[in-house]
Design a protein around this nucleic acid. Structure first.
Lengths: 222, 222, 222, 222
DNA sequence: ATCTAAACGAGACGGTACGTCCGGTCTTTTC
DNA sequence: GAAAAGACCGGACGTACCGTCTCGTTTAGAT
C-alpha cells in the first residue's frame, strides 16, 4: 500500500509488523470519525493503534500521507455497476461516490489532503496514484462498456479520447464533490438522474463534435 | 465585512480601528501566499499587520473564519462578461474563476476552509454567504441575460428553475475546481471551450425535459 | 494618603472623586482576601470598586503602590496598650501585631511588597513611610513610657539610644514575622511571654553594656 | 534535588537529563540576579539553560517551586564556624546569613516565595524542607557545641528544649532578615555583636527560667 | 542454539503555535 | 478636565503536538 515496496537492503533484523500497519490505518479512520482532520494527532492515532509514535513515523512521513493511505482503501469499494445502460451506470456511480463522501472520515479528510497537496507536489502524486486514479478507471471502464453496448461510438483519435475522458471525469467527480461538500445539499436519486441527463446530453455535443448523434437518455425518447 | 454590522449596543469606549481590519485581511492574504494555509499562524498575521494578537482574536473566532473573510474579498472581482452569447459568457466566467483559483492564496485556502466546514456548521454558513453566493449570482445573471437574448426559454416553474440553476452551478464550479486543484491540469481556453460545449449540450437535455429544443451550440444544429 | 498631597495645579475641570479612593482601597483589600497577592489584578480591583481602570492608574503607579496603601491603613489599628509594665506592654504589642499578620490580606501582601521593594527603591521608601514607621513608633513610645515608669534608665547618648531602638524593633518585628509567616507556627500568649522574657533579658545585657542592671522581668524575680 | 528520589516505576523511555537540572537551576539563579523575581519568566530561564520550556514544566510545577530549589542550594554554604565561644559562633552565623541575604538572587527571591507560600501550603512545606530546616540545624548544632563547652547547661526537658530552639531560631533569622530586607540597614560586625549580646542575655533569662546564670559574653569579663 | 540487527514500547527532548490573560496606554463619549 | 468604557500593543502564561532522540526489550532470520 505505501512506500516500502522494494525490500532493497534485505539485511538481518526484525521485520516490520504487518499487523501494525492494519491497526494504524484502521485507527486513523476511526480518529477521523471521532475528531475530524484538524484535531487528529499522530500521537492519538498511535495510542489508538496500540503502537509507539516512532513506529508510525518509521512508515509515514506525516499526517497527510497517513490519511491519504487510510482513506484510499475506502475507494476500493467503488465499482462500476452493470445496470444495462450508460445512464443508469452513471447514476449508480454517482450515488456510490456520494455515499462515500457522506462518510465522516472521507468527508473531513478528502478536501483537507487536497488542500495540503496544493503546496506539496509529492503529496499530490500520492493522491493521484492512490485516490484519483481509482476513480478515473470507473470512467474509462464505463465508456468501454458503453462502446461495447453500442451506446457510444468507438474513438479513432486516442488523444481526443483521453481528453474527453478527463473532461468527463472532472465534471462528474467535481460536481458530486461540490454538491456534497460545498453546497452541502443531498446527492439523492433525483439529483443523480438530472445530473446524468445533463452529462449525457453534453456528451453527445462534445464527443460528437459533428454529426455523431447518440441517443443520450433513453427515457427522454418518446 | 463581518459580524458587527448592527451598532447594537452603542456604548462608550474606543471604537474599533477600521484600518486594523484592512491591514489584517491584507496581511492574511500575503501570509497565505508566503506560507500556505497550514503554516499560516495567527501570530504571524498579527505581526505582519502591525497589530496585537488580541486585536485579531477580538474580531475573528479562529484561523478559518479569518481566511474565509480574507479570500472572500477576492471573489468580488468575478463578474459576468457581456460577450454576446451564452457560450462565450460561460467560457469567460470559467476562465475568470480558473484564474482566481490559480492564485496561490486562493488555491491553498479554498479547499482547506471547505474541509474545515465539514465539521463546523457555522463556518459552512459563513462560506456560503461570503463565497458561494458570490459565485452563484453569476449563474443566475448569466441565465437571465441568455433569456433576454432569447438563447434560453423563460422558466414557468420557479422551483424547477432554481433546481436547474443549482445543478449548473455545481457542475461549473465543481468541474473547474476539480480540474484545477485535484487533477492539477491547466484550465485553458481549449478546455473551457470543450467544457462549455458539454454544459450547453447538457443544458438543452435537462431544461428541455422534452422536445423543447434550444439552439444551444450553433455548431450542433445541422 | 498617597501621591497627590498638594493640589498643586488647581485648574478647572472635574475634581477627583474621594469616594473612588475609598472604594478602590477597600476593593483592594477584599481582592487580597479573595485572590491573594499573585492573582490580584488591577482590572479586577477596578471592577470591584465600580471604577474604570484609568481612574486607578491616574492615582497609583502600579500594583505594589496600591497594595502598600491598602494595607498601610490596617497598621493604624496598632497601638501601645498601657498595661502597667514593660513586659506586658511588649506582650500586648506582639499579640496585636501577630493578629494583624494573621489576617489574610496582610499575610499575603506584606512579604510580597517587601520582596518587590528589594529591587525598587522608591517602593521601599513608601513602605518605610507608610508601614514600618507606623510600627517603630510603638517601640519608641514603649521605651519612653518604661523610662517614665523607671523600668528603664534614661539614655544619655542619643545615637546609642537610636541604635538600640532600631535593634529592638528589628528583633521584635522580625521574630514575630518569621514565626508567623516562615515557621508558620502560632504566635500565642505562651510564645509571646517567652519571647518577651528573652527580649527583656537581652535588653539589660545590651543597654547595660556594663554593670547597669535592670530588673528584666519583674514578675520572675522573687 | 526534587521529587523523584525513588526510582519508583523504573519503566522504559528515555531517562531525564541530569545536566538539564543543573543548567536550569544555575540559569534560574542568574536570571534572578539579572531580572529579579518579578521579571523572571520561565521562558527566559529555559532559553538561558538551553532547554525547552516543556522540559522545565515537566520537572517543576511553577516559578515558585523552581526558585525555591534554585536558592535552596545556596543555603548549603551556611555552616557553623567553630570559633571557640558561643558568642562568636553566633556572630559568625549571623554574618554568614547576612552575606547570603545580601546576594541579589537570595534577596529578591526569599521574601517572594515566602509571600507565595502564605496561600500555598505545599510550597510552604517545600520551603521548610529545603530552606528553613537547613538554617535551623545551625541553631541546634550551635547549642550542642555550647553545651559541650559547658557554656550552656544540658536540657533535661526535651520539649522545652525544642521550644527554646525554635524561639532562638525565629529571633535570629527573623531579626537578620528584617534588618537586611525591611529596614534595609547593613548587618555589619558591630550590629552582629550588639545583637548577639542581646540574644545571649535573653537566653539566660529564658533557658534559665530562674537564677541559672550563664557567662553571657566571656570576652567582656576580664 | 546462538548471534545479530532492526523493529518495538516508552517517554524525554528542543521547538513552535496555541488561545488567554494582564499590564499599561490610548481614544471616545458623557458628565 | 475627570470619569466610564473599552479597544489597543506587548508580552508571558501554561498546554498541546510536532518530529527526533535515546533508552531497554523483543523477535525473526542468518549462522
Amino acid at each position: 500500500m505505501q512506500s516500502r515496496s522494494t525490500p532493497s537492503t534485505r539485511a538481518g533484523g526484525r521485520p516490520r509488523s504487518t499487523e501494525a500497519d492494519t491497526a494504524i490505518l484502521e485507527a486513523t479512520r476511526q480518529a477521523l470519525v471521532d475528531l475530524g482532520w484538524t484535531k487528529l494527532t499522530l500521537g492519538d492515532v498511535a495510542t489508538r493503534a496500540g503502537v509507539a509514535k516512532t513506529t508510525l513515523y518509521r512508515r509515514w512521513a506525516g499526517k497527510s500521507e497517513l490519511v491519504v493511505d487510510a482513506v484510499a482503501e475506502l475507494f476500493d469499494e467503488l465499482e462500476l455497476p452493470d445496470s444495462g445502460s450508460l445512464a443508469t451506470d452513471i447514476e449508480g456511480v454517482v450515488l456510490q461516490f456520494a455515499a462515500l463522501l457522506g462518510r465522516p472520515e472521507t468527508k473531513t479528510a478528502l478536501m483537507a489532503v487536497v488542500a495540503e497537496s496544493t503546496t506539496d507536489e509529492p503529496l499530490r502524486e500520492r493522491i493521484r496514484a492512490s485516490i484519483v486514479d481509482r476513480q478515473k478507471r470507473l470512467v474509462l471502464a464505463g465508456r468501454a462498456r458503453a462502446q461495447d453496448r453500442g451506446e457510444l461510438p468507438a474513438e479513432p483519435d486516442t488523444a481526443a479520447a483521453a481528453r474527453t475522458a478527463d473532461l468527463i471525469f472532472d465534471v462528474i467527480a467535481g460536481a458530486v464533490v461540490h454538491r456534497a461538500l460545498v453546497s452541502a445539499e443531498p446527492v439523492d436519486a433525483e439529483w443523480a438522474e438530472q445530473f446524468t441527463s445533463l452529462v449525457l446530453g453534453g456528451l453527445s455535443a462534445v464527443s460528437g463534435r459533428g454529426p455523431t448523434a447518440v441517443p443520450s437518455a433513453p427515457d427522454t425518447a418518446p
